[in-house]
Design a protein around this nucleic acid. Sequence first.
DNA 1: CAGAATCCCATACGATACTG
DNA 2: CAGTATCGTATGGGATTCTG
Lengths: 124, 124
Amino acid sequence: MKESMEIIGNGSPSADVFEPNCPSRALLDHVTSRWGVLILLTLASGTMRWGEVRRQVRGVSEKMLASTLRTLEADALVERKAYAVVPPRVDYSLSERGKEVVSLLNPLVDWVISTTAADAKTAS
Amino acid sequence: MKESMEIIGNGSPSADVFEPNCPSRALLDHVTSRWGVLILLTLASGTMRWGEVRRQVRGVSEKMLASTLRTLEADALVERKAYAVVPPRVDYSLSERGKEVVSLLNPLVDWVISTTAADAKTAS
DNA sequence: CAGAATCCCATACGATACTG
DNA sequence: CAGTATCGTATGGGATTCTG
């Protein structure tokens, strides 16, 4: 009745985010991580340099930016392109997968923003 | 300056998740928190008792379950109903707001699950 | 400029024990 | 049953410094 008969009716034994060591849980954690969401959202605007991402995602430390970007890259959500120039230039952009997930993240964030704004006046 | 003109064209000054101390960022963090997502998803199946939630969200400790539930309740995403019986019975369910956010969380989780499953065979 | 390295703190989280 | 209290650990995360 309830549970996760989610998608993939095609015979695939479905991944289960409720399972502690299912890889899907890890991916979910990365995508929904504190900085992960914001970085993905930021890159939705297009290819950006490291410094640009850092400026847009206000409050992120260099350490977390680097580490989160690496994680997202490992998950194949973000693509990194380094140019052998000096000063160095590195471009980050969303992969196709990344664009997919952002399109799903967007409604969520929009909802958060709109209810937060609504709260401000409703103060219910 | 640069603004995020996200949604709410209705004159509301929009909340900004990119701003470190915007309340929307906090709400986003709660909703996308490690256990927050799973708990919300679980409650999508309907009203449940504490122990049921705990069983379904495998791997969650009592401490985190309690604390996350309290946070979500404070955010008005989850409703808690305690009955003065012995043994105690407490029911948790999604509020209307909670149902809204779950409907946005679902596609995301489905995507995560399906790409994880795909990865397993594609092994790109 | 784009990071890596280091240091250090806060807290998220888990395990266990206890209680109304 | 539905938690709280307490303790301990791991990791997230920030600040700073260093380098190609």
